[in-house]
Amino acid sequence: MSDTITVNGTANPLPDDPRVSLLDFLRHDIGLTGTKKGCDHGQCGACTVIVNGIRINSCLTLAAMHEGDSVTTIEGLGTPDEPSALQRAFLEHDGFQCGYCTPGQICSATAMLEEIAAGWPSDASESLEGHIVTSREEIRERMSGNICRCGAYANIVAAIEEVAAGGQS
């Protein structure tokens, strides 16, 4: 295994200082500032990224712990010209005001739809083993790790609901 970490398909050397969080590595060391630092304590979700297909808070993990891992950030999901289905839906539904939480919201929602597709239950699921209906209640529970201080929740949920109903592109 190499002492690199792959971000959006590109390999990068790990930082020398073990204190560097994955979040600071992304923003400071390799200049991908789409991922945001909100609380830096795992409470707000603004730093959510997808590591090996799983969404995590990048503020609560050390870059050094991710040697050989593959990280996807908001920059890796789509571009202004070719947005992902969720990026487009957030624009259409006005799923933000200030936009600071948005990259975390979209990374989180992207992985969340995969979790539902895999049949993972949530606290809001009626049954632990049955089919999951992507209801507003399910979306709200599954997105509870992403805070929006502007309170754009209604439109965030609407954007996710539309993509969930239409299938992912």
Binding site: G42, G45, I54, I56, L60, D123
Partner: peptide
């Protein structure tokens, strides 16, 4: 866990957030 120990699955799902439980 879901089939035989649902109290455990429910307890875990009632805690933290998906991002935290994933790590």
């Amino acid at each position: 866990v879901r089939a035989d120990y649902p109290v455990l699955a429910r307890a875990i799902l009632a805690g933290a957030t998906q991002q935290l439980r994933n790590k």
